[in-house]
């Protein structure tokens, strides 16, 4: 009776897992089938052989590699900037005392409520004004100096660190900079990893802003080019699926490598509110 119940339980879990992981598997099946097979066979059947033609067609199609590179570059700059400047601000809000600190922090918090779209129109006009449209700068500039959400998350965590350690370091004459690099960063590793992941996923997936602020091919990013492929190759599913997988695979790799930290970090961001 007991074993039967466990069996049913695990079968249920597996069926649910199929729903969540299935689209990825099917996308791989579809992208690895030659065009003729995609329509003659059922979508859930395994590809006969490892047909890499779709990936090759996509990767060598005009500019795709470049878009991939653009996304990688912009995401890297955005992540490094957002996390570094965010750590600085979070440390100051959590551990330094200066006039106007709490008032300033509430301004940061208030901006959390502003929907993304509200800032899109004015940001675009600003970028036009400064002749920055169609540049890498325009894509990452609004997000590279730190975002209130990750600053908030890191501040909460830094505040929970034991204050005696900081007091002792100050007494030893350590500068704020030294305290930050030698104490806060090592001790705040979990939340810094969280912030890094949030920034990376945001940068990699960002769509609306790059769509608006770039209109030439040379600065297009991956997400925008996938959306464009979808409308131009509308019925060549094998190609569009291959293109989508190029965007998805790096995230799958990151997830496989950091699965434990990701799960923990999401929970950290919920509990630390």
């Amino acid at each position: 009776m007991r074993t039967l119940r466990y069996t049913v339980f695990y079968i249920c879990l597996t069926l649910i897992a199929v729903v969540f992981a299935g689209p990825y598997v099917l996308a791989f099946f579809g992208a690895l089938k030659p065009p003729a097979d995609l329509y003659s066979s059922s979508p859930w059947t395994l590809p006969h052989s490892f047909y890499t033609g779709n990936f090759r067609t996509i990767l060598f199609s005009d500019g795709f590699i470049r878009y991939l590179g653009n996304t990688a570059l912009v995401t890297a700059v955005l992540t490094v900037g957002q996390v570094s400047f965010g750590v600085l601000a979070a440390y100051a809000f959590a551990r330094l005392e200066f006039p106007g600190r709490d008032a300033l922090f509430s301004v940061y918090l208030a901006t959390l409520m502003v929907p993304n779209i509200v800032t899109i129109v004015p940001l675009y006009t600003m970028m036009r004004q400064f002749h920055l449209t169609n540049t890498y700068w325009a894509i990452f500039l609004p997000y590279v100096l730190g975002t209130p959400y990750t600053i908030f998350l890191m501040r909460q965590y830094f505040m929970s660190l034991p204050s005696e350690v900081f007091a002792a370091a100050r007494v030893d004459g350590a500068s704020e900079w030294r305290i930050l690099t030698r104490l806060v960063i090592p001790m705040g590793r979990p939340i810094i990893i969280t912030a890094t992941l949030i920034a990376f996923v945001f940068g990699w997936n960002n769509f609306l802003w790059p769509l608006i602020v770039t209109d030439s091919n040379s600065r297009q990013v991956l997400t925008v080019s996938i959306a464009a492929l979808q409308s131009s190759f509308s019925e060549q599913w094998n190609l569009v699926l291959a293109a989508s997988l190029v965007a998805l695979i790096p995230l799958l790799v990151v997830f496989a490598l950091f699965q434990k930290q990701i799960v923990r970090s999401i929970q950290l961001s919920g509990v630390n509110r």
């Binding site: 990825y24 769509f207 997400t223 569009v240 997830f255 990701i262």
Partner: peptide
């Protein structure tokens, strides 16, 4: 949790 780590644009295609 896996789907959370996917690009909405790419997954919309799939």
């Amino acid at each position: 949790v896996l789907p959370y780590m996917s690009t909405p644009v790419a997954m919309a295609v799939v």
